[in-house]
Structures are given as structure tokens and as C-alpha cells.
Design a protein around this nucleic acid. Structure first.
Length: 448
RNA sequence: GUGGUUGUAGCUCAGCUGGUUAGAGCAUCGGUUUGUGGUACCGAGGGCCGCGGGUUCGAAUCCCGUCUUCCACCCCA
């Protein structure tokens, strides 16, 4: 029998890891629900037609395709099969794929359920997604996404609300973050001001890397994309702007850029009605790769440790039109659960109660007391105390070692003396202190 | 998808230019200790040396392939 393995880019989760992950999800969910968002779920598999063409050519390569059932080769395109043209054969042997993100399935959901949805529709979704990417540390082929979106309204109130959700969720997780804000229209304004509207995408991708590779390298990249020196100078000057109002003079002849500034100002008016623990900062170099963003964009970075972004999102004006429903504007953000997990682990932010599974372990000394101990166990459980009994009255040492391994808070020791007197020995593991108490008093002691 | 890197006990890693029976620490199990855990001491079990092929009298060690890990691109969470 060969040693078992799991596929590339996947991993198992231990009880402790799942408990910690559920803690993060629990906090995030409760914030979502407080702001009036409801959960939905969509299937693991979508029709390939739903997924392809939505993430660009790169994305299509990264989709996991599901092979058709039955004798799929007999129905395959014979010519393309003979030519060994994988891409062309694909359509005839695979009609389903694993979801690549939660946004496109959500757009599909909105279109399919449009007649039963009351807009604005506020939903959140926490499910795994799959990408056939080449794995690296912290980048897997299967990972959870945690998305919250509102569609059917273009009010900038929702931009403010989502930033408040970020602020509150990270505050409750104990993670200090900086929430970066920009607007795609501002970025387009830069292209307009520099007279390179046709190179908007190329420019955006280069600018996005500014904090990672520095201005000199960004200029190199822009030059590679055949943007002339005068335009590059212009872009460099604008990127030095840190203040919204200072931006206005650059965008005098850029209607889109002006609109972007106006949107950000309205957004800030909503936002300023409250106080925030985390820093919220305008960052003109924030770009976000995804092509469907059209308005405000967000990214969340941890403050005290070096880590990639732990969240991001933005406004998309026309996501559902790819499925035939026009004029539905949406805005949403995503929480990077895995990165949040790593950051919290590094900063030791998980409360100890998350990982202590067992409150009490009962240790019995002999067969008679073991039977008696089982009855005691039932009383503890009836009082909603998470308790267990070692399955056999073996050596105390062995039972105590098991108690340590399970990280229990208390052990209850039961032998013939305790059975006779009904006074059980309660031991607090951390201190080693022990007292003799009746079962009712033990329940009271543990619950207080 | 391109270039590189890694793989030896459950975990972290030694193992020289190929040479007897592949080692250590931690973990596990047993004992010192039959009503008390973490410490100490003693002992034991545990390995297709990632997988497949090749070179060689002889391969954990060299070569090829493959899978996996991690890294830089690409892209992104």
C-alpha cells in the first residue's frame, strides 16, 4: 500500500485550525448580519459557459474543468482530438467547471433570481473556490473566499458602509489595519491627463506595483508599454499627490477624473459621520487588477506586520450584463481568510477559549468507579459542560497525560473513596489545586 | 504558462568526493512510580531515503523522467 497523498495546492485542516478559522468566520458573519446582509450559497460546479471569458485569458487557464461523465471520448470532437488541440477538444468533453471566485456565480445568481429579489440586494457568501494556479506559500489551489456585496443601488452610502464593516470586523478580530481607498475613475483621469486613454489597462497594472517595486521600475514598465516620456513624467507627478483637493488641478481637462474625485468626496461625507479605530487612507496608486471595477476600490493591509493584503473590493457598474441583465450596479468587498488567519497566528490574537475543546475530563481508578463516573459525566453534560470520561480505568498517569494533550481545564478524580462519600476530587490542571466537592457544587464551580 | 528549488522516522533535520545493519533531537509507547499530569533517568517501537527507470560489483548519495514543496516571473486571495 503506497503512502497516501493529497493533490497539489490542497491541505488538511486540524481540529485546532478549523476552530480558529470558524472563529474568524463567526466574527465576520456577525458583523455582516448586523449590517443587514444575508447569506447565500451557490454550487461548487458551474456551467463552463458561465465561467469562461469572465476572468480574461489568464483566468480561463486557471479554471478547473470537470470531465463529462460516461463515454466522453466517443462524443469528443474527432478532428480536434486528432490535432491534439486541447483547448478546442475541451468544449466537447467538459461542460462544467469549479467556481473560480464568488463574484461571477453571484452575478449569475442575481440574474437567475431577479424576479424574486428585492433591490438593493445585500448578500454575503463564505465558500471555497478553486484555481489551477501554481501554488506558493499562502497561495493554494483550494481556498475560502469571504465576500459581501450589495447590488441594485449606486448610492455611495454602501461604499461607506462596507468600509465600516471592514473597520468593525478587523477591530473585533483584534487586527490593526489600514484601509486604502481609491477610485478607478481617478486612475482613468490620470490616463486622460497624460493623454494615454488607450493604454489605461497597461498603466493601471504598472501603477498597482508601485509600493512593491518602486517608482523607477514602474517607469521602466510604462516605457516598455510604449508610453512616451512626457506622459510618464505627467503620471509620476500625479502619483505624488496624496490629497484629494490637490488632485483637482491635474484633472481640469479630465471629466472622468473629476467624477472620480466627486465620488470620493461624497463617500467621505458619509464616512465622516462616524469614528474609526483603523486608519482609512486615500492612496492614488491603489489599482486592483480585476477589470470589472469601475468606481471606488478598496484594499486592506495589516499595520504591524509585513503581509500581503487581507481584503479588497470595489464598485462594479455592470457585472450582471455579462448574463444579460443591464444597469445593475454593485459594490462589494472580500476578506482574505487565510491571510487573516496567518496574521492573527503571528500576533497571537486568537483567544485561548477558541482551542480548548474539553472543559472537564473524568478520571476513574477502577471498574466500579468507572461506571459511577459515567453517571457523573451525564450530569455534567446535562448542565451543558463540555466533558468526557477516559474510556477505561487504566493508570492515572496515562489518563492525566491524555488530559494534558486535550488541554482540559479540570479533571475530576473518582475512586472507591469518592464513590462512598459522594465527594469528588476536582482538580484544576493549570495550578494543580484540588478540592473535594459534591457533583452539584462542581457544576456550580465550573459554571461560575 | 516560464525559470529555479526541495523531498531521509509523526515533526525538525544530520548522513563527506557512491562502500557494512541509515542517525539525532522532539513526539509516541513502556518502565522507575498499582490514588495524581507537566520535570528527571532508563528502555522500546517506528524508514520501499517521494515515486519510476538508468549507470555501477555496490546508490539515500550519480544520471533521466515524474510527482510534490518552496521561490522569482505572470496573475492574484
Amino acid at each position: 500500500m503506497a503512502k497516501p497523498t493529497i493533490p497539489k495546492g490542497t491541505r488538511d485542516f486540524t481540529p485546532e485550525q478549523v476552530a480558529k478559522r470558524n472563529f474568524i468566520f463567526g466574527v465576520i458573519k456577525s458583523v455582516f448580519e448586523k449590517y443587514g446582509y444575508q447569506p447565500i450559497e451557490t454550487p461548487t460546479m458551474e456551467s463552463l459557459a458561465t465561467l469562461t471569458g469572465k476572468y480574461g485569458e489568464e483566468g480561463d487557464q486557471l479554471l478547473f474543468k470537470v470531465l463529462n461523465n460516461g463515454d466522453f471520448l466517443s462524443k469528443a470532437d474527432k478532428n480536434e482530438l486528432a490535432n491534439q488541440n486541447s483547448n478546442k477538444v475541451l468544449t466537447s468533453i467538459s461542460k462544467r467547471g469549479l467556481r473560480y471566485d464568488l463574484t461571477v456565480p453571484f452575478a449569475r445568481y442575481v440574474v437567475m433570481h431577479q424576479h424574486e429579489i428585492s433591490f438593493p440586494f445585500k448578500r454575503y457568501q463564505i465558500q471555497p473556490v478553486w484555481r489551477a494556479d501554481r501554488p506558493q506559500k499562502g497561495r493554494y489551489q483550494e481556498f475560502y473566499q469571504c465576500d459581501v456585496d450589495v447590488v441594485g443601488s449606486n448610492s455611495l452610502m454602501y461604499e461607506a458602509e462596507l468600509v465600516q464593516i471592514y473597520n468593525e470586523a478587523f477591530e473585533r478580530l483584534g487586527l490593526e489595519v489600514t484601509i486604502l481607498v481609491n477610485n478607478r475613475k481617478v486612475l482613468y483621469g490620470i490616463a486622460e491627463a497624460a493623454g494615454i486613454e488607450d493604454k489605461f489597462m497597461e498603466m493601471t497594472i504598472a501603477i498597482d506595483k508601485l509600493d512593491k517595486i518602486g517608482m523607477a521600475k514602474v517607469k521602466e514598465q510604462l516605457k516598455l508599454k510604449e508610453i512616451d516620456d512626457a506622459a510618464i513624467e505627467q503620471i509620476e507627478s500625479i502619483l505624488k499627490v496624496t490629497d484629494l483637493s490637490a488632485l483637482e488641478k491635474w484633472f481640469e481637462n479630465s471629466p472622468t477624473g473629476q467624477k472620480g474625485i466627486a465620488e470620493l468626496k461624497t463617500f467621505h461625507k458619509y464616512l465622516d459621520s462616524n469614528k474609526y479605530k483603523n486608519e482609512i487612507k486615500f492612496d492614488i496608486s491603489l489599482a486592483r487588477g480585476l477589470t470589472y471595477y469601475t468606481g471606488c476600490i478598496f484594499e486592506v493591509k495589516t499595520k504591524n506586520i509585513q503581509m500581503g493584503s487581507v481584503g479588497g473590493g470595489g464598485r462594479y457598474d455592470d457585472l450582471t450584463s455579462m448574463f444579460g441583465l443591464k444597469d445593475i450596479s454593485g459594490v462589494g468587498v472580500s476578506f482574505g481568510a487565510a491571510r487573516i488567519f496567518d496574521a492573527m497566528e503571528e500576533l497571537n490574537l486568537f483567544p485561548t477559549s477558541v482551542t480548548t475543546g474539553l472543559e472537564v475530563l473524568i478520571v476513574a481508578f477502577d471498574e466500579d468507579s468507572h461506571t459511577y463516573a459515567f453517571a457523573v459525566l451525564n450530569k455534567l453534560r446535562a448542565a451543558n459542560i463540555v466533558a468526557d470520561l477516559y474510556p477505561s480505568p487504566t493508570k492515572i498517569k496515562k489518563q492525566m497525560k491524555y488530559a494534558n494533550a486535550r488541554k482540559v481545564r479540570y479533571t475530576i478524580l473518582i475512586g472507591s473513596e469518592e464513590m462512598k462519600s459522594q465527594v469528588l476530587t476536582l482538580k484544576e490542571m493549570e495550578t494543580g489545586n484540588q478540592v473535594g466537592l459534591k457533583i452539584e457544587d462542581i457544576v456550580h464551580h465550573i459554571k461560575s
